[in-house]
Design a protein around this nucleic acid. Structure first.
Length: 274
DNA sequence: ATAGCGCCCTGGTGGC
DNA sequence: TGCCACCAGGGCGCTA
């Protein structure tokens, strides 16, 4: 499931190959992928224009194109975005394809069809709702432990629910929330407002370190995720909590439990986390 | 404002 | 072997 490290890995790879490439044609195979524009309007808007930088905000990919427009793409659970030769056989779940001058195609494939594209003609226009209210980037300088403390303060919701909320912190999903909480020895059901300063500082450190480690490993592949070159990530071999239900905790040997918190499966060491 | 829950969707899995 | 219920889950809309 693409979360911040997976989306960042895709961003880096697209950034290496996409800037300067001019769109020649657009093929919309699943129209409802487009959230705020019709297929022919999108075609008119981008054909003849060149991609520029590829940015990321939380789990959103921001593909700058032309003077000030952007294609804002969310991969959701199973979306894949990659550049291949136009001769490459079309993946059966391809939803969008942008033919590029020179013979390549930027393709968006998505088994579960939850992925979205918004067209923004200019900054502040056409952005998805989830991007307008998004929280701080956890790897930026704005994300200080004090800011995390202010986010958690007074909240009765579980830590898990608050950390999954993109308005509080951008880019965390089920996997990295479980990993960060395990590393910080905090239980996902703990009401967010009950943390002491030392616990908040540790959580802040662990959120950042686990994201950095995962980016360095090229992200986590559980089932579907592949990067912009079609390769799986490597962090699934370094997971310490997620998916380890029934297996021993590497710190204390206690068997991991799996429980549902905030509607999501959560992996917890009942001895280490409280 | 806040918190919780159901829904969207498809393919893989596990039980019988 | 075949069938089917169930699960994965990010974000959004609805409810209380």
């Amino acid at each position: 499931m693409p979360e911040l490290p997976e989306v960042e890995t895709v961003r880096r790879q697209l950034q290496a190959v996409l800037p300067g490439r001019v769109v020649q044609a657009v093929d919309v195979l699943l129209p409802r992928t487009l959230q705020n524009i019709a297929p022919d309007e999108l075609t008119d808007a981008v054909v003849g224009r060149a991609f520029r930088k590829v940015a990321r905000r939380g789990k959103f990919l921001l593909l700058h194109i032309g003077d000030k427009a952007r294609l804002i793409i969310h991969l959701r659970m199973t979306g894949r975005l990659f550049v291949v030769s136009a001769k490459e056989e079309m993946h059966p779940h391809t939803r969008l394809s942008f033919a590029l001058r020179g013979g390549d195609e930027l393709r968006f494939a998505d088994v579960r069809t939850f992925g979205t594209l918004h067209y923004s003609s200019a900054p502040g226009s056409g952005e998805p709702p989830g991007l307008m209210n998004i929280g701080p980037e956890p790897l930026s300088e704005q994300f200080t432990w004090q800011r995390l403390a202010a986010t958690l303060a007074g909240r009765k919701a579980s830590l898990k629910a608050v950390l999954l909320d993109q308005r509080r912190v951008a880019g965390l999903g089920n996997i990295y929330v479980d990993e960060a909480l395990y590393l910080a020895r905090l239980h996902p059901e703990r009401p967010a407002g009950t943390l002491r300063e030392a616990e908040i500082r540790t959580l802040h450190t662990k959120i950042r370190s686990v994201l950095q480690e995962a980016i360095a490993a090229g992200g986590t592949t559980i089932r579907d995720y592949v990067d912009g070159e079609g390769a799986p990530g490597g962090f699934q071999h370094q997971l310490r909590a997620y998916g380890r239900a029934g297996r021993p905790c590497t710190r204390c040997g206690t068997l991991f439990e799996r429980l549902k918190v905030a509607g999501r499966s959560s992996h917890v060491c009942p001895r280490c986390q409280s």
